[in-house]
Amino acid sequence: MNPSQDNQSQSDTDSASQKKELSRRDFLRSCLRGSAVVGIGGVIGVATARSSAAGSVWQIDPAKCTACGRCAEACILTPSAVKCVHAFAMCGYCKLCTGFFDNQPHKLNSGAENQLCPTGAIVRTFVEDPYYEYKIDEPLCIGCGLCVKGCSSFGNGSLFLQIRHDRCVNCNQCRIVDRCPSQAVRRIPAAQAYIIKGKEPKR
């Protein structure tokens, strides 16, 4: 049973007026649609001028970083995507490395009692007297920045923190940005995804 059959006549007049109204509304709609298309086109136009085909990635600016240690815990990843990185060209190859040894080490060897790194992620190898080389064992590094603080306070500052892009998931909003006290984390072009100390482009 069709309920509309009950008042056939009224339905006829209704549909006539409805049609008129519909065409008017359709016209209005197509006008609005046209302006929406123009608007989207405008956004594309303006934004294309400021866009690049390559994306951007998060990175820590070592010049601003104070190695406060917050990024070790702020990152959505555990362990954090931030790890310590060594700029070997800047390193003094010190025998008493203040990034490796705790304050007043018992002896200058790699025993746990002498190390600053809580996870033993720095590997110390003898090169030639009196030089030692320090490498980061990245899977062990938790990015706490203790060694970075030690090295930049008393040494050459060749240890520094960087976001490792083999781990970083490149969140649209990096959680570390919210916690960083020195606003050292920013987006940089993906083509140059690291800011390696001592290699900074001349300003």
């Binding site: 705790d102 007043q104 018992h106 025993g111 746990a112 009692e113 033993g120």
Partner: peptide, 26 residues
């Protein structure tokens, strides 16, 4: 533990402490 080690004057006692510290660290 590290503080205790630093406070230990006797070198032999200190040497004896080291294995404990390393084990604790591990």
């Amino acid at each position: 533990l590290k503080k205790q080690l630093a406070a230990t004057k006797d070198p032999q006692a200190a040497e004896a402490m080291i294995p404990h510290i390393r084990q604790a660290d591990l």
